[in-house]
Design a protein around this nucleic acid. Structure first.
Lengths: 198, 198, 198, 198
DNA sequence: CATGAATGAGAGTTCATTCAT
DNA sequence: GATGAATGAACTCTCATTCAT
């Protein structure tokens, strides 16, 4: 028989519903923002009840944290992959990788920015914040190391400036500011890199 | 006639309670975020009832829009004032003005960023959005014109890049990212301006 | 005109709905117990929405505390009144007063007994507990002083024993135990007093 | 036949998991109260799933009823044992036995008191109530017979009074009332017995 | 029989908004 | 025009119970 035994199937397909809940949450977070997303709506999008969600995630915050952590993970892996293939101009490759990742996954940038509010009262659990900060730090270090191997002056300052430029441009892009100014987000980033890392 | 015309009277004696409501809303939005601010709390901070708020503003969104409009207005005036006093390096003065305004009024940057999610289906009324866009456009033009009068190459691209850098740095500052990286927000902006507008 | 002005009416009739909510809560607490009583059901019994309840009471616990405090207050006043009219045998009068009050207001004994669970985790706020303990203490002192003025030996021990007897009998009465034993709750209390305070 | 009859086997090898569930439920009821105890938590304490509990008990109420029945059974056996060893003063021995049993098993007194609210419409099944009443009746009769064999006057009244005193004191003890009054629960019971059964 | 995921109802609580006074 | 009490829907989260596997 070609049927996989139940156990093996369970191992091979670890909780599809969990994945569907995460996907639904990602979508709803993107569409409605962090506060606007309700557990009920997320559950409905996932095709289950709130109870089924709470059986897998301890609450809304845990759901958000897992999604954000996954996003940072994918970004890190994406950077690592790009740098493995890269020869020279590693700093440029890293910053382009950062920029393009969020350009192509716009909802994930929004996800990270919700932390803006989170700094105020009612933010994330300290442990989660710590864990997410670690992931963020790893990404910055990857970029900084790439700049160092290029022999760039003041690599930390350059890394911060590059990331800031990418974030600023992406936000202006997403909020329609760039369209208002007839500017192209890709060209802008290219122009920045040409100026900063000639 | 000895009577002050109606318009003049309105200008001379604008509804003081209206101003107090706006001030209260600004404070509460800053302290609790857009979703965390309740109309009741705003009313209490303003020393009046919810009814008194609804007599002047059609709802929470209208309050938000008016505050944002006022913020952009003050930013525009702040830039204009700085440029009147400035001689050379007008572009640098304009970008520094933009950066410093939001550095000193951090809640107003947050206000503007809520627009990020506002772009979605639950966003602002089209008319309000249009009006706010006009204000934003004015600010960009002010910066661009300053760069033009400096004789800078590609002034639009430079204006956009400078604004993006400022916004990116401010967000990283507010979300604690810069502290994580041991970076100073003011130094970073200085470094950017030194590089981009030498 | 015979109409009371609005202000005077407000003072004379201080929030009837508040009284109706308290009455409804008393009834529902009695019928369903502390955990079984839901704010929604209490609201419906009071003929209003939960919001109207929360406008007057900070939560379920506050509702319960106010009802219990009122009950203890009425008991204290009832004891004081009985003792003012009493000549000799003041201890007997006090204990009879305690017993009869709860015999006639059976729901209020239940109210106090919910504290049994409340001692565990999730009980009352320390401040409320403190306040209620003060009221309980006052009642015990009233009984003890009555026994002292009778010249009874070991008045504290007697007060405690008398109160314990009353509480025990009332519980057995309410839970149907006395009916099972063909015992009459009033006779039992009389017999106890005849033996303990001859 | 060499086979053990079914009944004997059942007695010899009673479903061990059933016992573990009962023990877990007892503990959880004690720690969290009747309403605070969830079937999930009980199941986890018993090291099984909720399904395994429902295979043996029709629901939460049945669990509660069986625990209460077991408690009354153990009390009865405890009284019987004490009286077998006793010579004179059998009534005092019986009442002391009743008092000490619940003093040492405080959760079981709580268990019985939940019946207070159970008297209402949401109470126990009539059959269960009947069965529990039988057990209670047996305990009272044991105490009454002990008093009769002592030659005490009005043994039924004395039995009821003694049980009421014990219950009242135990409740005041458990709710912290006795601590408030600087009274000792054991001394109080001793003082009562000295007075009532000299 | 055992499992444990799923359910659906319901818990306490908060909120933007309305409207009789 | 101001009030502030009332609304009703929405929120996050929990629970006893069921049932396909």
């Amino acid at each position: 028989m070609t049927d996989t035994p139940a156990l093996a199937r369970d191992v091979a397909e670890p909780d599809r519903r969990r994945q569907r809940i995460l996907a639904a949450a990602r979508q709803v977070f993107e569409e409605r923002g962090l506060d606007g997303a309700s557990m009920r709506v997320i559950s409905q999008h996932a095709g289950c009840t709130t109870g089924a969600v709470y059986a897998r995630f301890s609450g809304k915050e845990a759901l958000y944290a897992e999604i954000l952590a996954g996003s940072l993970d994918r970004l890190q892996q994406s950077l690592d992959r790009s740098l493995q293939e890269a020869g020279n101009h590693r700093g440029r490759v890293a910053l382009q990788g950062f920029f393009r990742y969020y350009l192509e996954q716009p909802s994930e940038l929004a996800l990270g920015l919700y932390l803006y509010q989170g700094l105020g009262p009612g933010g994330l659990t300290p442990e989660l914040d710590q864990q997410l900060n670690q992931a963020v730090l790893g990404i910055y270090q990857t970029i900084t190391h790439a700049l160092i191997s290029d022999g760039v002056n003041e690599p930390e300052t350059q890394a911060t400036a590059g990331v800031a430029q990418a974030i600023g441009l992406l936000i202006m892009h997403r909020t329609g500011r760039l369209k208002l100014l007839n500017a192209d987000v890709g060209r802008q980033m290219e122009a920045y890199l040409a100026m900063a890392l000639p």
